[in-house]
């Protein structure tokens, strides 16, 4: 299944990565080569196999419901490119 440019552009949009036309063309080639190579997995018979999501075969651990964190507005926002009055600031969002 060869990817066309529109698909590459759509995927880039989903991933929020700006690509110019030349980059779209380049990644179209790269992605097609990579996906072609990945196709070889179809040779493996996996009919009776459960997908393996984790190598650790056990249940997730759980935390006690205790407040142990927070109260660090400065530390949370100190790396922000734009912050004001304790908020993160972004270009206006229109709903």
């Amino acid at each position: 299944m060869a990817l066309d440019k529109a698909t590459v552009a759509h995927v880039a949009k989903l991933a929020r990565i700006k690509l110019d036309d030349a980059e779209i063309e380049k990644y179209q080639g790269d992605l097609n080569a990579i996906l072609d190579w990945m196709e070889q997995l179809n040779e493996v018979d996996t009919d009776s196999v459960e997908p393996m999501t984790a190598v650790v075969p056990r249940a997730t651990a759980e935390r006690h419901d205790v407040v142990t964190d927070g109260g660090r507005q400065d530390a949370v926002t100190e790396n922000a490119p734009d912050a004001a009055h304790g908020y993160f600031v972004v270009p206006k969002v229109v709903e």
Partner: peptide, 9 residues
Amino acid sequence: ADPNAQVAF
């Protein structure tokens, strides 16, 4: 609470 005062990393 104050903005971002109840935020873990």
